[in-house]
């Protein structure tokens, strides 16, 4: 494994990621040697049966848990080299994460949930508020900014979680089933929004069971039993590079 400089367009690289849980008889191999890169201007969809390792892959890619082996490289930084405080900073500034179960804080309003990562990062509250409202507007929820999660429907909570993942200057968006609770039209709204962020230069991984949503991605990666079994890319590298250069 060489530590050659990553190309400038490369946002995320996973190098030989493996994840094992437990020992002996009860050992589970959730991931078995995953190599994957995501460039700027690229949206990658991950599909696969329940238990195939999609969420595990995403939490490792987002630095939320350490793999048993392998390397995660975000914008040229090897996570294994970074102290926890630097990884936390990376998560606050660079990464947007949409959890499968939303993970909203009940004591905060929709807007406060969205602006939390910015506030933690020392943004002035006026500026954070403006960015938060902009993110909420992108999922058509700015008129619900002051509601608490308990007073929102499941689909609305999911959209708040999505707004939190794209707020401010997030460059790498990792979304675990971000459309699970949404109806077909709202799901499409969210995908269009993610697509336009990515076209503007971000990168993203989208875990989904919905083929119609996976189709918004530049590449679809299929996982089975912790391995990548196939990848599909329609118009191929040409458009991908064109997108990256435009960004």
């Amino acid at each position: 494994m060489s530590r050659a400089l990553a190309p400038a367009t490369e946002l995320l690289r996973l190098d030989g990621i493996a994840q094992h849980y437990g020992k002996g008889e009860t050992a589970v191999t959730a991931l078995a040697g995953i190599d994957l890169t995501v460039s700027r201007g690229e949206l990658v969809a991950i599909m696969g049966a329940s238990g195939s390792g999609k969420s595990t892959l995403l939490t490792i890619a987002g630095g939320l848990s350490k793999p048993t082996s392998g390397e995660v490289i975000i914008e040229g930084q090897w996570l294994s080299d970074l102290p926890p405080t630097r990884i936390a900073m990376l998560r606050r500034r660079t990464l947007g994460f949409v959890f499968q179960d939303f993970n909203l804080i009940p004591a905060l309003t929709a807007l406060e949930n969205v602006t939390l990562p910015l506030e933690l990062d020392g943004w002035k509250s006026r500026k954070a508020r403006a960015a938060g409202l902009e993110a909420l507007a992108s999922v058509e929820l700015d008129d619900h900014a002051n509601r608490y999660p308990d007073d929102l429907s499941g689909g609305q909570q999911q959209r708040v979680a999505i707004a939190r993942a794209v707020v401010g200057t997030r460059r790498l968006i990792l979304a675990d089933e971000p459309t699970g609770a949404l109806d077909s039209t709202t799901g499409e709204l969210v995908l269009r929004m993610l697509r336009s962020r990515v076209d503007a230069g971000a990168g993203g991984i989208l875990v989904t069971h919905d083929p119609r949503h996976a189709a918004w991605a530049d590449r679809v990666v299929f996982l089975r039993d912790g391995r990548i079994i196939d990848q599909s890319a329609p118009a191929g590298v040409d458009t991908l590079f064109a997108d990256a250069q435009r960004a």
Binding site: P211, R212, A214, A215, W216, A217, V220, F222, I229, D230, S232, P234, A235
Partner: peptide
């Protein structure tokens, strides 16, 4: 099944574009 699924998804991607 996988070969077919990848092909069908490619069609779906083209249509979505």
């Amino acid at each position: 099944i996988q070969v077919q699924r990848a092909a069908s998804l490619r069609t779906l991607q083209d249509l979505t574009r």
